[in-house]
Amino acid sequence: MEIREIIVGAFLGVGCFFVVVASIGVVRFPDFYTRLHPAGKSDTLGQALILSGLMIHEGVSVVSLKLFMIIVLIFIVNPAASHSIAKAAYLAGVEPWKDKEGGRS
């Protein structure tokens, strides 16, 4: 067990943790807008960490370059996708869920 493999394992583990947390969040949060939060953030970071782990495993090569491109693409595209879904829902008039105190709107 090399030291590099341990680092790769740590990246994969933390990334999987965030991906699972995002999935639990999407199932558990009470309304559509709050569900966007785990989908837009935890999912992005989790996937980026897993792909970074693969990059460290691979070292410097063309494969790493492709993985890096996928990471950049995920960082641009994932928030954009959740934003476009949010905007579509907002324009269609989906009401945000309020807590008992009643959030301002």
């Binding site: 947390v21 639990i24 969040g25 807008y33 935890s42 869920w97 807590d99 959030g103």
Partner: peptide, 15 residues
């Protein structure tokens, strides 16, 4: 976000 997701009381107040 992870803390709020896994917290049993789910401390959120959307605005």
């Amino acid at each position: 976000v992870a803390r709020r997701t896994l917290h049993p009381g789910m401390p959120i107040s959307p605005t």
